[in-house]
Design a protein around this nucleic acid. Sequence first.
DNA 1: CTGAAAGCGCTAACAC
DNA 2: GTGTTAGCGCTTTCAG
Lengths: 336, 336
Amino acid sequence: MKHVSIKDIAKELSIAHSTVSRALNDKYDIKKETREKVLKKAEEMGYYPNPMAKKLKENKSFNIGVVVPEFRNAFFPDVILGIQDVLLSKGYQILIMQSNEDPIIEESNIRTLHENMVDGLIISLTADSHNVSFLKNLSNKNFPIVQFNRVSDKLETSKVVFDDYTWASFATEHLIKQGYKKILHFAASQDIALCKYREKGFINALKRHKLPCNKEQIVPSGLTIEDGKKAMEKVLESNMDFDAIFAVTDPTALGAMMVLKQHKIEIPERVGVVGFSESRLSQVIEPSLTSVKQPTFEMGQAAANLIIQEIETEVKVPQVMTLGGNFKVGKSSVRL
Amino acid sequence: MKHVSIKDIAKELSIAHSTVSRALNDKYDIKKETREKVLKKAEEMGYYPNPMAKKLKENKSFNIGVVVPEFRNAFFPDVILGIQDVLLSKGYQILIMQSNEDPIIEESNIRTLHENMVDGLIISLTADSHNVSFLKNLSNKNFPIVQFNRVSDKLETSKVVFDDYTWASFATEHLIKQGYKKILHFAASQDIALCKYREKGFINALKRHKLPCNKEQIVPSGLTIEDGKKAMEKVLESNMDFDAIFAVTDPTALGAMMVLKQHKIEIPERVGVVGFSESRLSQVIEPSLTSVKQPTFEMGQAAANLIIQEIETEVKVPQVMTLGGNFKVGKSSVRL
DNA sequence: CTGAAAGCGCTAACAC
DNA sequence: GTGTTAGCGCTTTCAG
């Protein structure tokens, strides 16, 4: 397990270690023969550069930190695949950490990554990241940060977001066109920009179609299956009148569906349901869930490209990339 | 974004940088006042140690590599949470990489991690890791490796496994007790030890209960939903006689269920289904899937503890930890 | 074209 | 107690 160093090769060949370095890095000032001799020896001795030394020297870790709230749903793993796709090919490693939807852990993740000298940070915030002062601090010190998906308006960095407003509007219109008239929106924290925009898109669609749109129709819930269940139960208890639900996320929609099914309320006959951001669960549930599909892989690629750009060009002009998606019609929203 | 170093503090205080080092590391030979002065200054200047330097010096990265086949199902993310739980508290970072069930990517992951000088590797093999020579090579060089879940008999390292044999037996017996008589096993590659043991457990249970057990009952499929679907379709085409399925994993079981439902074959009335290693999808499908539940978090903790032990004690006596689980009865296997 | 030497930030012998 | 020095593995001047 002893690591062979550049010096070992030099000693073996009775030349200077700096010459070996040059040979390996294929710099100009080197005779072909020497170079080949060195390369052969290096191969032979199983040499590979000690990354720590290189990193220390260049004051760069070639590591990018990635912080996500969770990776139990398919969404973040898919984004990470996209990030990897770009970063690995450019010689960067990624350190993945998850905050478990806890702002305290999130901050400690960020701190750990920063202290480990990652060259940049790609982050999707927890649902309750009210306080972004720590991140803001880093960002002000010119530390490269790219936010994606769950971004904060209070933090000016490059961002990759989805056009939530337009697609939420589109999803709501789909329900309207199917003939649903009293549509509820299961919403989540307004601190997360995407939730705010999905809600706005919903309201906008109703208004455009001159449908009633009052406060009770916005049902506070959250991003998880549990949140969806609870909200649905409350709505049923309240005897509110409704015939469709547009949920802020798929898990929320699934939770709602599970409760509706328990109460023998037929989907889509009596209540139509539309989710957002297709999760794998939505393939399995019956009826299959209509949902907006986001380009997760591409989102990861975009975030990775932005961070590379910030790191390698040192220019900091925050860019916001807005991606589009597509709409996947399932059975949960289509009356026969 | 300039990193303040130990020397900067030393200069500021007009003392030697080694003194600063001592103060920060709280070694004996240091006067209290000096120490406090240094600590205060360090705080003031926003000092934190450059991990690269420490790592270079100590020839240790405090990074542990984690390679998993995928993290789209809940299983591996949950294990990783357990790994993090132990490792973060001991000052280690984890580098997560995923092989996407591809042995080529897997080997390149391992290589990347090794070249980045991780202090050890925690790995769950891909379904087709026939060739473990690269890993064996590393292991022989005393590089700490811990396998978990999908382990190879050809590779002698510490391992954390589940008692697949016993629990597969138990799951099969459950079906037998429910009155099912012609039970199929949807199996996967025998190269993965856990698949082999689940199959053996299945066969054993049938024999113990004197039920027929011939080759056709072992249906070659795989570990994914797709594999389950395909296998189910083949079985239906073949007009084989059967009344229950014990699938090697939950996704496999789910795939089978989806096809059964398409064919309007009632579960559990006409066909009972049992899976293995509860995935979140099994909560959502109807009827809910009976399944063996593995202690994922504990599995991660165990693997982490083993790797720490190998790294910090330098003793290499491969240990095999076998964990137990529990059985979650759903509706897919219980006739009314 | 190649060797010698400095230095990245830190720790740890060894002096004083 | 504290300062001096060497060295971890590497890259990069600067001589020659």
